[in-house]
Write a protein that binds this DNA or RNA. Structure first.
Lengths: 147, 147
DNA sequence: TCCAATTCCGATGAAATCACTAGAATTTAG
DNA sequence: CTAAATTCTAGTGATTTCATCGGAATTGGA
């Protein structure tokens, strides 16, 4: 039960885009620099984000990526699922039952419920929440004292 | 964010022991057979369970493992943490701040909270809960109709 | 005492994940 | 049109996790 680097890096990249909304597209290089991520690996991670329809790409010079829709409309579960591929791939082979106790399936009794808890947690939060929290923390860290 | 086989196999092994409480110790071979787990790998997983004080071993012929304390006193978090090693090993390097936005740390703002949610979920359940649920499912699947 | 059943320990192979490299395709700017 | 910037794709190491193997140490029973 650990958090993959795919999820962590992917989330950082999406946050970078959320913080930059409105201006020109951000290149992978810029995202990697801002978030301290390995550039070439990030390039690889952003592909599933594009395929999932979470970001939009612009090729060529001055190209890059922007969020495909408003940060309010992208849940953190969208992001994690895009880069990790549905996570619950541990399909349960209940019918056969060989590895299960008769009439009892640990996958269903425990792990699916845990997954549901995690999904609920992530689905209840959007990129906008993260963005706003980041902005609030930034302004608190560097308040303007000029009167 | 996926569930490791260490956690899944370790949990199954512990459940097997919880269901067997009171009789002779279970050997790794027996546990592996009952739960359909790779025997040699399980042997490797049970070592951290022993070191964490969750199971007690008896060496030699007729040896094996028993729960070190009552199933009611072993939370699922105890089990997962024993086999996975605290899970939150993603120590945050906030002070330096290089990979973080100024005054904002995604590890703390998101992943630590998610971890806390998972920990709460697992800590609120004990092996006894799983055992009782398994027993209930078994008797429901094979009810006694003799009057 | 000897044998079989075990735990226990270390090494090795196999598969997945993490990360980098190289280069083709595409687009903007001059 | 050319050059630079960039996405996009495929392939290759490096590292971690998953799983097996071999064998030493320990214990109960014949």
């Amino acid at each position: 039960m650990r958090i993959s680097t795919r999820a962590r890096y992917g989330m950082r990249a999406m946050l970078a885009l959320a913080l930059d909304q409105g201006s020109a597209p951000l290149s992978v290089k810029q995202i990697a620099e801002r978030q301290g991520l390995p550039e070439h690996y990030l390039e690889q991670l952003i592909t599933p984000l594009r395929r999932a329809g979470l970001v939009q790409s612009a090729r060529g010079a001055q190209g890059g990526y922007v969020l495909a829709r408003a940060a309010e409309a992208i849940t953190l579960q969208d992001v994690v699922e895009a880069v990790e591929g549905s996570f619950a791939t541990e399909a349960c082979d209940c019918p056969d039952g060989a590895p299960h106790l008769r009439g009892f399936c640990l996958e269903h009794a425990l792990w699916h419920r845990l997954k549901q808890t995690v999904d609920d947690f992530l689905a209840a939060r959007t990129l906008a929440d993260l963005r706003d929290e980041a902005l609030a923390a930034q302004s608190a860290a560097a308040p303007v004292y000029d009167i």
